[in-house]
Design a protein around this nucleic acid. Structure first.
Length: 271
DNA sequence: CGAGCAACCTGCATGC
DNA sequence: TGCATGCAGGTTGCTC
């Protein structure tokens, strides 16, 4: 489910409850996620102090003194902070219990999420080292995107969703940013001018920042650390709005399939 | 190399 | 009611 704003919302929500806490125990009910949960995770993580909780792309990084727990929420994953020993439900795959009595619970019906452990710099991890820049960093700018896109025949939408180009832009926000920038999602990345990339970069940063402020987008089941949904859904302009009138020109929003993902755009406003 | 797409898995909405 | 189909906030790793 989560794109960058939802992962960031989760990080901010759980950080106060986990940073500075010591792991008392881990309960693993399901090991078969996107990748198997490491065999010795329980032994490794027990008694570790969580020093810091970072995010890189859509990965959450739980730093301890001896290594780092890396977590990805996939399409349907969520993390919750629980005060008491609440009974687990279906799809509650992993619990991390802290000395303080609180529990961090990982739920993921579709099991596309994953949990990893590394003793080294997590940024050097195989799944992380090849990732492109953070969209909200200075490194992600017009010049960078323009240069990367030259000679590329790929559609601009799949291009900005490619994590080697830039991370954190999933299907919702790719649709939204392209609408805001007035760019047709099918347009070849290599044929877009510098000034239009300028607009696109600003739109991506803008939509992600606004979504973070609203606590992310809840379509069906995204919840933050406190079990509450995000409210950016009400601000969406094109995503999931097939046949609804464009907010600018009233033309019905079109739906197509691009790179196996639903794509929404206004054929009048986006070229 | 780039581009496209099948696959991983479960739940839910839709249509017959 | 049941069953079949298609779709869902992601990403890797296969083909061509």
């Amino acid at each position: 489910m989560p794109e960058l704003p939802e992962v960031e919302t989760t990080r901010k929500g759980i950080a106060p409850y986990v940073v500075g806490e010591t792991v008392k125990d881990i309960i693993i009910r399901e090991r078969q996620l996107r990748w198997p949960v490491p065999k010795n995770l329980k032994r490794t993580l027990k008694h570790q102090l969580i020093r810091k909780l970072d995010r890189r792309a859509k990965y959450l990084l739980f730093h301890t003194n001896s290594g780092c727990l890396i977590m990805h929420l996939g399409m349907s994953g969520s993390l919750r902070i629980l005060n008491n020993k609440q009974a687990h439900e279906k799809h509650d795959h992993v619990d991390i219990l802290f000395e303080s009595g609180t529990t961090l619970r990982f739920r993921d019906p579709r099991k596309f999420g994953s949990i990893h452990w590394t003793n080294q710099d997590p940024l050097e991890h195989t799944l992380i080292q090849h990732l492109g820049p953070e969209p909200l960093s200075k490194e992600f700018n017009t010049e960078y995107l323009f240069k990367k896109s030259r000679q590329r025949s790929q559609a601009i939408k799949t291009f900005i969703m490619d994590s080697r180009i830039v991370v954190g832009v999933g299907n919702i926000y790719a649709n939204e940013a392209l609408f805001m920038a007035g760019i047709n999602p099918k347009k070849k990345a290599g044929k877009i001018s510098r000034s239009r990339f300028d607009k696109l970069v600003n739109s991506i940063k803008d939509v992600l920042n606004k979504a973070i402020k609203k606590g992310g987008t809840t379509l069906r089941d995204f919840i933050n650390g406190e079990g509450k949904p995000g409210y950016f859904r009400h601000e969406l302009l094109v995503y999931d709005k097939a046949n609804e009138p464009c907010v600018n020109c009233n033309t019905p929003i079109k739906t197509i399939r691009l790179g196996q993902r639903s794509t929404f755009y206004c054929s009048t406003c986006q070229h």
